[in-house]
Nucleic acid binder design. Structure first.
Length: 756
DNA sequence: ACTAATGTCCTTTTT
DNA sequence: GGACATTAGT
């Protein structure tokens, strides 16, 4: 077969990677070496060679990356590659979600599970913790966020508590026994609720692969597996992959150990370093020619990473020459840093670099707060990625909770959130209602007979009416004792992770509720099945057909419309600034319009949350000009002509919050490396010398900062160094900062706090 | 006995 | 500004 013409666009290493035949392949692809292009071309090449698109699996770090790659694969468009969209593409979690809805029965799952996002998982963990009485101990028990981190790290690294806690959470020592019990209870509760958390998606996929029949079928399903960003996978993911590739061994992984920045999520650089051992006979190809950055930027970046240990040595080089070295800008304080960045952005814009080709990068979301104010003031449009998410807004979560309830009436977390919306309802009443629901097979119709305090009565009635209107699916299907159907194979064998041994068996639904008068009363009023439900009593014996006659589901938009009819009056009662917030609800509704089913929408929203505040509407923003503000993590895989890294101080990079162990420090070094290698032509590394202490702390104290330790003096020499100073307060406080090495700088609108 | 309002601490990175 | 603990109020 003749090679397609587009192969000529590739350099020899890229071409070797793209045209690699069968067998394991590791591509070490440095920053900007055409990794996306190579992977996309390989997909296209496989399709050209006649591999059916649906037998190719492309695992990426974000769904967006998958889409981009498949779009590019389709661009190498011969007739056969137009099928690229039929390739299975997505994140590990999204693919797990898809596979488990189809084959989950082999590990005791029914296809109607819902997925908990992080905050839901934390809330559930907290609920269980409280019920177990672990919150009131003499010594302070770890908080929910920490608990979930610990749990998650155990699962994802496949290591037991007593190994993880001393190493990564030394301050939580001494609670091992309680935590083990807590995590077991948490696992049980998820079963009762018919929900999976993020980690479960991987965990159950892993166990699916261990079942004889379904595991073999899953492994059979794909002829080729390609994995992007392999350096950011964890042990559990690697185990899943090994099982998926066990039969055909056609696995291609691409990554750069120097860009591994997800250790906090249990990603381990060992996966990529050990790949040749894990897959004996693997071909290793290294891509070193960088097509992105000018050489002076690479020189600086190479110098930063040169001091890291344990890596595939590679030195990036570029044909893009330039006289311009990256700039190292020391500012007097944060305010000056903001002014400098804004001014330079506008200068670059005038010089012909559009806003979309410029970006500001920060270590954590809040470090751009002051800059955002300044940018708004100067009318510089921007979008922010990473940091606070749209989904975390209370009112958005409310609406989603209502939607989830319809999907999975046993979702306690959503119930608690929804019930707390009602006036006069707190934890105790909510618990009572939950108990009541449990006793009535979670049938919405039973709510009509549930008593609640007077203050809540009217709204509660409206809620019940709404749920009954929309909740067609509510019958025997949901009445199995645990919602995890009988396991047909007992392959869900226990392992170091917290999957319970009895995952497949039926489990009695017992809600451990603190005894409270009201809860007892509410529960006893109707602690018997309602007449209309009696037929559903026998453990899941009702046929599904019987349910479906009752389960006409209105369109998703109609459902949301009906929900809003109930929710918006409530919403106005409890939130300030309703006018602003209501737009979010509209956006949510607009977004949902493009989804077919409720399940798809909910899964998508939890597995691939919109990353920016204005990420939702999509098309309307197409033509607008805006620049990017992003966390370094979210900037992975991106590039811009001009990049500003701000707050490059010690204490920010590396963060003061790291526990100080060498592994974490090394990751921070790579973070800096990732940030620097995003830049094509201009790189500004900025750092303020002085920080004003929080307003909460002692008056107007300030502290002094230093440049990050990852740019020591010998590396500094590779930068053009710029020191900004404040002007003398002669002209009544108005003036401009002087850029000592660059007289052109015109910084306007500057108001010196010291000078005034 | 519950809910709602007030007070105090800390504040990564993301599927 | 939000999470958590505590107190005031119904």
């Amino acid at each position: 077969m003749a090679d397609p013409a587009w192969l000529d666009e590739l350099n020899p290493q890229q071409r070797a990677a793209v045209t690699h035949g069968d067998g394991p392949l590791l591509i070490i692809a440095g920053a900007g070496t055409g990794k996306t292009k190579t992977l996309a071309a390989r997909v296209a090449w496989l399709l050209e060679r006649g591999v059916p698109a649906e037998r190719v699996l492309l695992l990426t770090f974000t769904r967006r990356a998958a889409q981009e790659m498949l779009r590019r694969a389709a661009q190498y468009a011969s007739h056969s590659t137009r099928h690229a969209p039929r390739v299975w593409g997505g994140t590990f979690h999204a693919v797990a979600n898809r596979l488990l809805r189809q084959h989950g029965h082999a590990v005791g799952l029914t296809p109607d599970f819902t997925v908990l996002d992080q905050s839901d998982a934390e809330d559930l963990l907290n609920l269980v913790r409280q019920e177990m009485g672990l919150h009131s101990r003499e010594k302070r028990f770890p908080k929910k966020g920490t608990l979930l981190e610990i749990y998650s790290k155990c699962v994802n690294s496949q290591q037991p508590l007593d190994k993880v806690v001393p190493r990564d959470f030394p301050w939580c020592a001494g609670f091992d026994e309680e935590m083990a019990r807590l995590f077991a209870a948490y696992t049980d509760r998820k079963q009762q609720m018919n929900v999976l958390d993020y980690d479960d998606l991987l965990l159950f996929w892993f166990h699916l692969m261990r079942t004889a029949e379904a595991g073999a079928r899953a492994a059979e399903r794909f002829d080729h597996i390609l994995v992007d960003e392999y350096q950011d996978t964890n042990k559990l993911q690697a185990d899943v992959l090994r099982a998926m590739a066990a039969v055909k061994r056609n696995i291609t992984v691409v990554g750069d150990d120097a860009q591994s920045i997800y250790g906090f999520r249990a990603a381990t650089v060992r996966n990529i370093l050990d790949f040749p051992k894990q897959f004996p006979g693997a071909t290793v190809i290294t891509l070193e020619q960088n097509y992105r950055s000018v050489q002076p930027i690479l020189n600086a970046a190479n110098a930063v990473i040169a001091r890291a240990r344990q890596r595939f040595t590679k030195n990036l080089w570029s044909e893009r020459r330039s006289e311009q070295r990256p700039l190292l800008v020391s500012c007097v304080d944060e305010a000056q840093q903001c002014r400098f960045v804004c001014t330079r952005i506008l200068e670059q814009l005038e010089a012909g670099v559009p806003l979309r080709r410029q970006a500001v990068l920060v270590r954590t979301g809040h470090w751009s707060d002051m800059l955002e104010v300044e940018m708004s003031r100067r009318n510089i449009p921007y979008r922010k990625f990473g940091g606070l998410k749209f989904l975390e807004a209370g009112h958005v979560k409310d609406l989603l909770a209502l939607l989830r309830l319809l999907e999975n009436p046993r979702d306690q977390i959503s119930w608690l959130r929804v019930l707390n919306l009602l006036p006069g309802v707190g934890g105790a009443t909510a618990n009572g209602v939950l108990r009541f629901l449990a006793a009535n097979n979670h049938d919405f119709r039973s709510l009509a007979h549930c008593s609640v305090p007077t203050a809540a009565r009217e709204r509660f009635r409206e809620l019940a009416a709404m749920l009954v209107d929309l909740g067609g699916v509510n019958g025997p299907h949901h009445e199995r004792a645990s919602g995890w159907c009988e396991s047909d194979s007992n392959a869900a064998a226990p392992h170091p992770g917290p999957l319970p041994a009895d995952a497949g068996r039926g489990r009695k639904l017992v809600l451990p509720v603190q005894s409270s008068d009201l809860a007892q009363r509410v529960a006893t009023v109707t602690d018997f099945p309602l007449p209309s439900l009696a037929r559903g009593e026998g453990q899941g014996e009702g046929s599904c057909a019987e349910v479906s006659t009752n389960s006409f589901q209105p369109s998703l938009s109609a459902q949301i419309g009906r929900i809003r009819k109930f929710y918006e009056p409530v919403f106005h009662d409890i939130y300030d600034h309703a006018e602003v917030r209501i737009r979010d609800l509209e956006q949510l509704a607009a977004m949902a319009a493009s989804f077919g089913t409720r399940e798809e929408f909910l899964s998508d929203v939890t597995l691939d949350p919109p990353s920016g505040t204005s990420d939702w509407a999509g098309a309307p923003h197409k033509d607008e000009e805006w620049m990017t503000i992003s966390t370094i993590h979210s900037a992975k895989g991106c590039e811009w002509d001009v990049v500003f890294l701000i707050h490059a101080t010690d204490g920010v990079i590396p963060s003061d919050l790291t526990t100080g162990n060498a592994v974490e420090i090394e990751e921070e070094r790579r973070l800096l490396y990732v940030a620097m290698t995003r830049a094509r032509n201009w790189l500004y590394v900025c750092f303020p010398l002085r920080y004003y202490a929080d307003k909460h702390v002692l008056g107007d104290r300030h502290s002094y900062a230093q440049l990050t330790r990852f740019i020591p003096s010998d590396v500094r020499a590779l930068f053009e160094q710029v020191a900004l100073t404040l002007p003398k307060p002669a002209s009544g406080g108005r003036g401009g900062a002087k850029v000592e090495t660059d007289g052109r700088a015109k910084i306007r609108g500057f108001w010196s706090p010291e000078g005034g």
